[in-house]
């Protein structure tokens, strides 16, 4: 399947999945809006309390305004990278419905990515509306300016991070070829990402030894990097290096996912469990 056909396939699945997601209208909007509001309230309360306790205007490189903007974007970007429809690949393996991807000219990657992206789409819209709201209310921190370059490169980094996380989940769910229950692996990845990707605390506030170690993992590139690029806190050198490392991780995890998937297919019987 060529890239164009894969993109078309992903697009069609994306539209169908979006319609399915919003078919339970009250539940969908209620959950999306309320859970976002709750997450924002928690992060704002934590950092306001920390700044109050310290009685300082700046912690690390962040004023309170910058910190609140960072954590707000981190909440939306985390929703974007986590996507929707997780767990369905493992279920396809268990119940034998993976066979349809093998029999018909369908790529499991393009199909699953299509089901993954609707939540990303809504999260990006949410982030945009929230930024607009802050600006209109006059609460925009003076220290932060957004340029078109920052926003486009931030969104590009977010797009790459979303696909990277999708592939990481794909790898874990592919273990369903050998193991009976794999959902715990995805949950472990989700938990780990909450802290180690900088969602709750920006990574430059981590202790140096931990921050340094994490640079060798994909976690900082899932959230901290896209948010930093978007807010323009990365230097040009960090920007180039970050995109390079993110690209390398994407390639590595993609190759790994293909190896696991193709090995798994050898054991796949198609009858389901």
């Amino acid at each position: 399947m060529n890239l164009r056909a894969a993109a078309t396939h992903t697009g069609l699945v994306f539209l169908a999945e979006t319609k399915r997601l919003i078919s339970y209208r009250v539940q969908f909007w209620c959950e999306l809006l309320l859970s976002t509001v709750v997450e924002l309230l928690v992060t704002v309360a934590v950092w306001t309390a920390v700044f109050e306790a310290r009685g300082v205007k700046q912690i690390g490189n962040y004023t309170l305004g910058e910190m609140l903007l960072y954590v707000m974007l981190a909440v939306f970007f985390a929703q974007a990278t986590r996507g929707s429809g997780t767990g369905t690949f493992a279920r396809d393996i268990y119940d034998g419905s993976l066979t349809k991807y093998l029999v018909y000219p369908l790529s499991v990657y393009s199909y699953k990515l299509g089901t993954y992206l609707p939540r990303t789409f809504f999260a990006i819209i949410g982030a945009g509306l929230s930024l607009l709201g802050i600006a209109l209310l006059g609460d925009w921190p003076d220290e932060v300016t957004l340029s078109l370059f920052q926003m486009t490169s931030g969104l590009l980094a977010l797009g790459m991070a979303t696909i990277l996380f999708f592939l990481m989940l794909f790898c874990l769910e592919a273990f369903a070829f050998w193991v009976d229950h794999v959902w715990a692996l995805s949950v472990i990845l989700n938990f780990t990402t909450m802290l180690l990707s900088g969602k709750w605390i920006p990574m430059d506030l981590f202790p140096q030894w931990l921050g340094g170690m994490l640079l060798y993992t994909p976690f900082p590139y899932l959230l901290y990097f896209p948010v930093s690029v978007f807010l323009g806190t990365s230097t040009e050198a960090q920007l180039g290096q970050g995109f390079f490392v993110l690209g390398v991780w994407l390639l590595v995890v993609y190759v790994l996912s293909r190896v696991i998937y193709e090995r798994g297919l050898r054991t796949y019987t198609g009858v389901g469990i």
């Binding site: 309390a49 920390v50 306790a53 310290r54 802290l195 709750w200 605390i201 506030l205 981590f206 202790p207």
Partner: peptide, 14 residues
Amino acid sequence: GFFEILFMHTSDLG
């Protein structure tokens, strides 16, 4: 871990 890192930047929370 979250609270441990947070307490590296403050002596109390609320």
